[in-house]
Design a protein around this nucleic acid. Structure first.
Lengths: 210, 210, 210, 210
DNA sequence: GATGAATGAGTATTCATTCAT
DNA sequence: CATGAATGAATACTCATTCAT
């Protein structure tokens, strides 16, 4: 009965936004960005279409918000001690995290892969150096470069495989693409891999790149 | 005055079909399947919308035709001696072919990756074990399995890295996903990699998996 | 400023639905189902094409809605005391009703005849025993059979024309087809018959079948 | 090998025209005028689309030709002695003919009913006093009026039912509409009536109107 | 006479977005 | 804050008809 405080309003707003984003992520991942209609999202979120636009100014902005939120979660989870340097333990930790997140947030990763490969969505939105794809505000690109630097640095200092023509940058490149290839295979396979297999692959990657 | 012969008609049809498929592949790859309109295709092919439907009964059938044609080209190109066995030389040959095709048919590979990841296109068309995705009649799946068998066989018999817990199947899996990850990176990067870099990566993969 | 109540929304919906159905009936009757375009209906109803689809999911559903509504009106009008039995007075009443409805809802009857005879509309929609053609939920067929039973019953018990080979079912059949033939003639004639002639025919039928 | 004579050419033309009309009647009757495509007709007649237009200048002209041909057959069949007068025997003969034709040319009658009731076909083509609907060149209307005159004349002179308020014109009207109603019922019913029932109805009509 | 490639105007339907209430 | 009616531009697809050969 008593009027809501500004604080309460803010909380309600946040809850609604979260609800909408959750529903939208679910649909975007499974049905695709284009095939998901605002009507569907609104209906499944139990709100009106108009209200959706009260929170997000467009369908694309909604997508951007989802990506930002999810990438932030990932980033926060990955950036363990934020000292910019990876010890061997941290590297293993990093890989384990990737595998865990792949499993736990399969939905989100599916979306990411789809968005990245879907022109007219990713490129129109995030291409051309527009830096709309952010991680808590930081452009994705910067995060990406930081990660690559850390990995090059790691591979420079690790002891294993110090062959003559050993190239840390190439090692990083192979490592990332192996991860990328596996991630895609994993994310797109519907229950193809059981947990045991997932674990074995993780160990194989550790064996090769740790 | 004299009417065209059936042969002439057949030639006209073939030429126009090829033209349409070329234009469509270009657009599907760059703009995406959904974002590509029949109007666009027709306009760029210099024909009317109606004519498109004289050759392909729907937009999806057009896509299927393009995929079949392209996969046939790829398959014919990859299936060197068709003895089902890979020697070390053949393995190198195989990898070199993959890299060459990646370069020569970048457009097509871009399309393939995008289609695979775009729900409501690949899945609706080719999902559910419908085996509509064929290579000159042979279902894609069969080709895929043959390739995997050959690779497992190869890794079983090769001499390098015969570590204690060496698992040919895992080796095959790592190899394929590395290729997959790299392919994706390569195909989606607009001129990121020059020919020299492409070559260096090829050699790196040879070094690790040959 | 205050939002519309659900009640208001419902009223708006009902009004618009009625408007669209009225306009569509008019056009379907005069121009035919196929020849009537959604554009025409929308333009004449003063609304946008899109709105039509907000109320009816397809052109065919619009037709079904019109038929259901109209048949319900007719049925409610015809089913006088619903005791399933026709006295002589009721029989006369029945015929008079048919003639009156023919006159008052000429538009609708024209549509009915046209739909029934137009393959690919009636048959696709209502054929195959799908019972989509309903009168307030009751399948048309049931109503039709009830009516025929009542008429046979009536002709069994009436006193006139009790010739030797008198067959109530045949009498019913002759009666219905006479009505049918006349209805078709009446409905398709643009102002051919004035009210006086209409009345004379009614009396003639009464003379023969009452 | 020898060049065809003009006579042979004419015969070939006639045969092709007949073939096309037969195929078209079949499709128009079963699928409807709008739903029947020129492509269908051409393919089923084993000719090209272009050739169709060599014989008939439009789809509507093809329909007009079919109707003219069929009505001529009916007319020739009905007009027994062409003295413009019906004796009792001739009247019975007439009714029997109607019933026989209904049975033998059910396909055609189905088309006729559908065409008559399908606006945008009949009306656009034949409405507005354009008299495009002909019987061997004679406008349909004239034939129709002749028939009605003959019937009125017949009912004037017949002996049965000479009640006080006997009106030959009304009798004719009742007779024609009974025939019309029954024809519609018969033509639209798929095998509802067996030959025996058909015969019984014929006798009933004779009993009432002869 | 005969062919079928080519056209283009027309059709139903979808959906992100706006806005009065 | 909240609603859902209303819009309109866009899209895939159809088909009678033309015409070069």
């Amino acid at each position: 009965m008593s009027p809501r405080t500004p604080q309460q309003f803010r909380e309600i707003r946040e809850e609604k936004k979260t609800l909408i984003m959750d529903v939208a992520l679910e649909h975007f991942s499974n049905v695709g960005f284009h095939a998901t209609t605002i009507n569907h999202i609104a209906r499944h979120a139990g709100i009106s279409k108009g209200l959706m636009y009260n929170y997000f100014s467009s369908k694309e902005e909604l997508l951007a918000a989802i990506l930002d939120r999810s990438l932030t979660e990932v980033y926060n989870d990955l950036d363990a001690d934020s000292d910019g340097h990876l010890s061997e333990d941290e590297f293993e930790h990093f890989i384990r995290k990737v595998f865990r997140l792949l499993h736990e947030k399969k939905q989100f990763w599916k979306l990411i892969f789809r968005i990245i490969l879907q022109p007219g969505v990713f490129e129109d939105m995030f291409g051309g150096g527009s830096d709309k794809l952010t991680v808590s505000g930081t452009p994705m690109k910067a995060f990406s470069e930081t990660m690559m630097s850390m990995l090059i640095d790691y591979f420079k200092n690790r002891k294993k495989y110090p062959g003559e023509d050993y190239d840390p940058m190439m090692e990083m490149f192979m490592f990332l693409n192996t991860i990328k290839g596996f991630s895609m295979t994993y994310v797109l396979s519907d229950d193809l891999y059981n947990d045991d297999y997932h674990e074995r692959i993780l160990n194989e990657i550790l064996k090769r790149y740790k």
